[in-house]
Design a protein around this nucleic acid. Structure first.
Ligand SMILES: [Mn+2]
Ligand SMILES: [Mn+2]
Ligand SMILES: [Mn+2]
Ligand SMILES: [Mn+2]
Lengths: 218, 218
DNA sequence: AAATATTTTTAGATTAGTCTAAAAATATTT
DNA sequence: AAATATTTTTAGACTAATCTAAAAATATTT
């Protein structure tokens, strides 16, 4: 039996280790979980005892196969629920994350398999993140960040890194959504801002925007 | 802020008091919650402090208006989710309750309002229980229990009292569902069993079945 | 109205998850 | 290679929810 809190720690470790590979240190987990390092130490001891993580004192933590399996399953549930909220319940992409944080912990295999089928087996969530299938396989897409795009080339917007409501609403107000076609017009060396052309407008976006928008060449 | 456990106690008190009216005693709550009387005493003190319940030592407990409001909202969520599971995700009526016990605690007003709209504002759940609207109003139906039906009369099946998987599967295997038309043929005084006619068959049901099936005259 | 039985509450522990403050280990500077 | 800074762990305490065992209140019998 796994608790909701354990699930959240496992998910945090997974994300911090970029998919369960490299070791994660205590303070990183503490800041991701908005808790104190001492609480993290206690929890990773527990995860280690339950065989979800490998841990040697002072040496950071990695997930076991079991831990990775748990993490991927929670991510699957989180992203499927996000699709449901947007596609069926009229949520916008900046409203789904918080609710999905709760829904992802509902434990019912039938529920999630049927939801998957009901949504017609989506492979990406509303932020462009891949949804693992029942076996845990992700469908990866090659994407680059706007900051590294070539001047003169045309791209399709396929994802965001920052999924905060603030950033997503900024994109909304500039008519940028997943699927939007953009052409890179100019990179300003002074502040790394970038001028891009949309269908009906040209706008200049700051470096922090350029670092959080994923593109695919078309 | 209200905890999941507090919500479950409030719901239990609501159901035990038949909709929040009469006072409920400690042992009844303990048995409904599958816990010990001493735990119940602690919790009703807390609910009382938080103004969800009125409580005088040794005198049992009643819900306040706030407590009733909380209870009705959880029941609304529970029953809407049950409809969703049956209508959209191919769950059968004996599979929904357990999952709904978890989903009912997800806190998002938009989620539940949009779900309600998505389901086209259902007024009854898969077991024939009424779904309160956003304001907490139930749409009541006059229904009688099969045990008290008249010999010779014809009824429509509109609900069940026992929602256990065992009972619901028994009904399935005898082709009794909500909406099924039945005619009462004979009441056996010896053991209170009842012979009923369905569309294509006649069956005899025991007293315990007759006490758990709700009917409406047609 | 006493005696007895039942119900409810209290007292004291336990577990999960958290915290602060201090100690120990590791990393970085000088 | 010391000294200093940073990170991590430990020790001890707190809260929510639970338990057992005993005490107190209420209800039922005699
Ligand atoms: Mn999300
Ligand atoms: Mn997402
Ligand atoms: Mn139910
Ligand atoms: Mn129901």
């Amino acid at each position: 039996m796994i608790t909701l809190t354990e699930e959240n720690y496992i998910k945090a470790i997974y994300h911090l280790s970029s998919n369960g590979e490299k070791t994660v240190n205590t303070n990183a987990i503490a800041s991701a979980m908005q808790t104190k390092a001492s609480s993290v130490t206690d929890m990773i001891k527990k995860l280690s005892e339950k065989n979800y993580a490998d841990y040697k004192k002072y040496q950071g933590v990695t997930l076991t196969d079991d831990g990775r399996r748990v993490a991927v399953n929670i991510i699957r549930k989180h992203r499927l629920w996000e699709v449901f909220l947007v596609e069926k319940l009229n949520f916008s992409w900046d409203e789904v994350h918080e609710v999905a944080e709760h829904l992802e912990h509902i434990k019912s295999e039938k529920l999630i398999d049927e939801l998957d089928a009901f949504l017609e087996f989506p492979t990406y969530d509303p932020h462009g993140d891949p949804i693992p299938d029942k076996e845990g396989n992700f469908k990866h897409i090659e994407k680059i960040v706007l900051a590294k795009a070539e001047v003169g080339s045309t791209y399709k917007c396929v994802g965001v890194d920052d999924t905060s409501s603030k950033f997503l609403k900024y994109l909304d107000s500039n008519n940028i959504a997943l699927g939007t076609i953009i052409t890179v017009k100019h990179k300003e060396p002074f502040d790394n801002s970038i001028k891009i052309a949309l269908e009906h407008s040209e706008i200049v976006v700051s470096q922090s925007v350029a670092k959080n928008l994923y593109l695919k060449k078309v």
